[in-house]
Simulated scan of single mutants.
Amino acid sequence: MVKIEPFEVEQWMDKYEVTPGVLNIAETCVASISIDDIIALCEDPNVPHPINTSTKLTYGAIRGSQALRERLASLYSARVSSPLSPDNILITPGAIAANFLLLYTLIGPGDHVICVHPTYQQLYSVPASLGAEVSLWKLRKERNYIPDIEDLKALVKENTKMIIINNPNNPTGSTIPKSVIQSLIDVARAQNIIILSDEVYRPLYHGISPIDPDFPPSLISMGYENTLITSSMSKAYSLAGIRLGWIASRSPSLIEEIASARDYTTISVSQLDDAVASYALSPSVLHSLLARNIQLARTNISLLSTFISSHPQTCSWVKPTAGTTALVQFKKKGEVVDDVAFCKDLIAKTKVMFVPASKCFGEEFRGYVRIGFVCETEVLREGLERLGTYVKEELA
């Protein structure tokens, strides 16, 4: 029987986000929007409504509609010499299903997997449950949570099957620079190792400019065929409720292998979800949607940065450059707090919700919490005001 560890972060979220009156500053999605909202963002009034109510609700396109896969392919074809074919994209019920499906397909007993850490627990617990040996490629605060290629080289074995990264990273909000990605590819190519890049927070970059020479491109655009990327509409695109994600690869054989296994798990995604995603990714909506979300991220991280700067004896962090999450350490009189007890007490006394990092990402992160800061600005502002009062009363 497959044995899989409890998914700590999801169990924490499930338990506490339903607390009456909670201010959820742990959520990892950009503040969610409605269908009315995305219609309002559309720059072309002649674009049809995203939902055609006369369409018969059959299974629809098994691998995802042509329109949706073409729009996704265009995102990964910008500024590259070889455009990505829509046939190299597989639509799934969220990135969580995409990750599980490709790991289920490609990883098994006798394989060795290397995964960045900290990251979303699924990315290392699922390979372990499938019988693989898993080594953690540790991110360090003193390196601004940028992975060290020399550390990676020390982890690679003869049976290393896959290297997994999460770029931008959850929970740190760090990005892996282009130069480091290239070095990673060089290591992987030497042994024909598959690289999986979970890119659910791409392209929500708020602290690094696209003109920066180390601005991180999608892994799929870097010229190494033996790669897979996963993403979804949930995080950077504010549409978690439609449960739509995807797998993309330059390798037709990898896509076909995963598509074959997919027959046992998912016939197709909902036509309604597919239609809403296709509308949101259309040229008339995409740019205004991303502009809204990047501006929200910049506004909110400024608020959070001001709060942390105002409490230097209590709070410390490495300021995120992308995504929706930050890893913040709290201290009381010079000693790191018990982050689990801190988070429970904070919810009980203020209704402000964080995620305790030692429970959800590893004991080495004792004293840290994950903050999801790209909620509605008023929610964050109110949460930080309550947190400020708590810090003065309980941690000073």
Rank of each mutant, 00 (worst) to 15 (best):
P213I: 07
S179E: 08
W317M: 10
E43K: 08
R366L: 11
T28V: 11
L327K: 13
I51S: 10
V269M: 13
I208A: 05
V134A: 00
A154S: 13
E257A: 14
A341F: 05
K157C: 03
I96C: 12
A240N: 13
Y237H: 03
T119R: 10
Q11S: 09
S282C: 05
S309E: 15
P83A: 05
E133S: 01
I146Q: 12
L152D: 07
A326R: 10
N226Q: 15
T227S: 14
N226Y: 13
L184T: 06
M233H: 07
R370T: 15
S34L: 00
V374D: 07
S85G: 10
S32V: 03
D37A: 00
V336E: 04
G362N: 11
P283S: 12
V22Y: 02
V318Y: 05
I267K: 13
L272M: 14
T58P: 00
E142K: 00
P312T: 02
I294E: 11
L102E: 15
D148G: 00
I229A: 09
N192Q: 13
H117T: 04
G94N: 06
R262M: 14
E225F: 04
F354R: 09
D263T: 11
P48S: 06
L219C: 04
V352M: 07
F373S: 13
Y16C: 02
T172S: 13
E256T: 12
M353I: 06
S218E: 03
F361W: 11
T350V: 04
E335H: 10
F361A: 08
L23C: 04
N192Y: 10
A132I: 09
I163K: 09
I301R: 06
A348Q: 14
H117K: 07
T299L: 07
I185M: 08
A188F: 12
R298C: 05
K392C: 12
I247N: 13
L155I: 09
T175C: 14
L68M: 07
K178I: 03
L239Q: 07
T299E: 12
T172M: 08
S251L: 08
L254V: 13
M233Q: 10
L380Q: 06
T350H: 01
S270E: 13
D338E: 07
S135K: 02
V200Q: 15
P171N: 09
K332C: 02
D263P: 00
G334V: 10
N169T: 06
P118E: 10
E150Y: 02
I163M: 09
R298L: 09
V180L: 03
E382I: 01
I35L: 00
A291H: 11
V391Y: 05
K349Y: 00
L90N: 12
D212C: 03
T19F: 00
I258M: 13
Q313K: 12
T119D: 12
I247K: 13
A275S: 15
N52Q: 06
S34W: 02
L346H: 07
S234C: 01
E17H: 15
R292S: 00
C42S: 11
E394Y: 10
P356M: 06
V80M: 08
P356I: 08
M233D: 14
T389A: 14
P252L: 10
L130E: 06
E256R: 15
V2C: 04
K3I: 03
I195H: 02
N169G: 11
E225H: 09
A280H: 04
N52K: 02
L68R: 03
P118W: 08
K141S: 08
V156A: 05
P50H: 04
I294H: 05
E363I: 03
Y104G: 01
